[in-house]
Computed example of a mutant assay.
Amino acid sequence: MSTENFSVEATDSGLLFTFTGQLHAAACGAMNDDLMAAVEENDGPVVFDLGAVTFVASSFLRTVLTVNRTKAKDGFTIINVQPEVKKVFKMAGLWDALGMSKTNS
């Protein structure tokens, strides 16, 4: 599955979502239904790769929180976070709350 701002691939251990560009409110609104459908259909862990993301809006943070809650028992990880995006997570108080300081320095 692929949309303008993300692609998803099944791995041996779960799903890998690779995001690109700016994840502003309009982009998140357009992709959220497809993204959540894929997350809910999968029994394994989910990984969000933000290596090519340059901006995240609060709507993406809401998506992250929803996926984190949905995948609490299976696992949820965010990798390759760019410094400007990391700043947004930290300002929102989500960096440590999601345990990202353990996996992303």
Score class of each variant (00 low, 15 high):
Ser7Asp: 12
Ser105Tyr: 01
Thr54Phe: 01
Glu4Pro: 00
Phe89Val: 02
Gly29Met: 10
Val56Cys: 13
Ala30Leu: 10
Val39Cys: 07
Thr3Tyr: 07
Ala52Ile: 00
Leu65Asn: 08
Phe6Pro: 02
Arg62Ala: 15
Val85Arg: 02
Glu41Arg: 13
Thr103Val: 15
Pro45Ile: 00
Asp34Ala: 14
Leu98Gly: 08
Ala72Glu: 15
His24Gln: 09
Asp96Met: 03
Ser2Thr: 13
Val88Ile: 14
Lys73Ser: 15
Lys73His: 12
Val88Thr: 13
Val53Leu: 06
Val64Ala: 14
Val81Ser: 04
Gln22Leu: 01
Leu98Asp: 12
Ser13Tyr: 02
Cys28Met: 09
Leu98Tyr: 12
Phe89Glu: 04
Ile79Trp: 03
Val39Glu: 03
Thr70Glu: 15
Cys28Leu: 07
Gly93Arg: 03
Leu16Phe: 08
Ser2Lys: 15
Thr20Tyr: 06
Glu40Met: 03
Leu61Asn: 08
Thr54Met: 03
Thr66Tyr: 05
Phe76Tyr: 09
Ala57Trp: 11
Ala37Ser: 11
Val85Tyr: 04
Ala52Gly: 00
Phe60Trp: 14
Asp12Tyr: 00
Glu41Thr: 04
Phe19Asn: 06
Leu23Trp: 06
Glu40Ala: 08
Phe48Thr: 05
Val47Thr: 15
Ser7Trp: 00
Phe19Trp: 06
Gly99Pro: 05
Gln22Glu: 14
Thr77Pro: 00
Phe76His: 11
Thr70Arg: 15
Thr54His: 09
Ile79Asp: 09
Met91Asn: 10
Lys102Leu: 14
Thr20Gln: 12
Ile79Leu: 11
Leu16Gly: 04
Gln82Tyr: 05
Glu4Arg: 09
Ser7Met: 11
Val47Ile: 14
Ser7Pro: 00
Thr63Gly: 03
Glu9Pro: 00
Gln22Tyr: 03
Lys71Leu: 05
Thr20Ser: 11
Ser58Val: 11
Ala10Phe: 02
Thr3Phe: 12
Gln22Pro: 00
Ser2Gly: 00
Ala30Ser: 15
Ile78Trp: 09
Val81Arg: 03
Asp33Ser: 14
Met1Asp: 02
Asn104Ile: 10
Phe6Met: 11
Ile78Val: 15
Gly93Phe: 11
Val8Thr: 13
Lys90Phe: 02
Thr18Gln: 13
Lys102Cys: 04
Glu84Lys: 10
Phe48Asp: 05
Met100Gly: 04
Val64Leu: 12
Ala27Lys: 05
Trp95His: 11
Val39Tyr: 07
Pro45Val: 00
Gly51Pro: 04
Pro83Lys: 13
Leu94Glu: 03
Asn5Phe: 14
Asn80Ile: 05
Ala10Arg: 15
Thr77Tyr: 10
Ser58Pro: 06
Lys86Met: 13
Thr11Met: 05
Pro45Gln: 13
Val39Trp: 08
Asp34Asn: 14
Val53Pro: 07
Phe6Cys: 10
Val46Ala: 04
Asp74Pro: 00
Ile78Lys: 08
